[in-house]
Computed example of a mutant assay.
Amino acid sequence: MMIRRWMAIGLGVMTLLSGCGSKSTYFPLEKGRTWSYVMRYERPDGKTQEVMQIRTLGKADYTDAKGASETAYVRRTSSGTDYYLSVKPEGVYRVAKRVVVQFDPVADAKPRLVMPMGKNLRIGYSWAMETQPMLIQWQGTFAEANGSVKPFDMTYQVAALDDTIDTPAGHFTHCIRIEGEGKITIYANPASGYQEVLINQREWYAPGVGLVRLERDEPLNMDIIKGGKAVMQLVDYSD
Rank of each mutant, 00 (worst) to 15 (best):
R98I: 11
P190F: 04
D64A: 02
E181D: 09
R94F: 04
E215S: 03
P151Q: 04
T56F: 08
L85W: 07
Q233N: 12
F152D: 02
K110G: 00
Y26Q: 04
T155G: 06
I3G: 14
P133N: 00
Y83T: 05
T131M: 05
D163L: 00
E203F: 12
L29C: 08
T77A: 14
K226H: 07
Y62I: 01
K31Y: 02
K229C: 02
E179R: 09
S192E: 14
N146I: 02
V100H: 08
N200T: 15
V87F: 02
Y83C: 03
C175M: 11
D82W: 07
E130F: 02
R75S: 15
T25V: 15
P168F: 05
K119N: 08
A160D: 15
S126I: 01
M154Y: 07
T34S: 11
A191R: 04
K66N: 13
F172A: 05
V95M: 04
G46S: 00
Y93C: 03
E144C: 00
R177E: 14
A206D: 10
Q137S: 07
G208F: 07
I178N: 04
D163F: 01
Y237D: 00
V13I: 14
Q53R: 06
S78I: 00
F172Y: 13
G170W: 07
G67D: 05
V51M: 06
A206I: 05
G140T: 05
A143Y: 01
I165D: 08
G10A: 14
D239N: 13
M129R: 06
I178V: 15
R75P: 05
V74F: 08
R55Q: 15
T185Y: 01
C20M: 12
F142Y: 13
T34Y: 12
R202H: 11
D223E: 13
D45P: 00
A160H: 03
M2I: 09
V87R: 01
S238A: 12
T48H: 07
R122M: 08
T25G: 02
R112Q: 13
L17E: 13
F172I: 07
V74E: 09
D82I: 02
A145K: 13
Y84A: 02
M39E: 09
M2Y: 07
L57D: 13
R5E: 13
Q102H: 10
D104L: 10
R75W: 12
A230T: 09
N146P: 03
R94N: 13
G12H: 11
G32T: 08
Q102C: 05
P105Y: 02
I136W: 05
M39D: 08
V87L: 06
V106P: 00
A107V: 03
G58Y: 04
V114C: 15
V106K: 12
G170K: 01
T185S: 13
L85K: 01
F27W: 06
R40W: 02
A8G: 14
V95F: 02
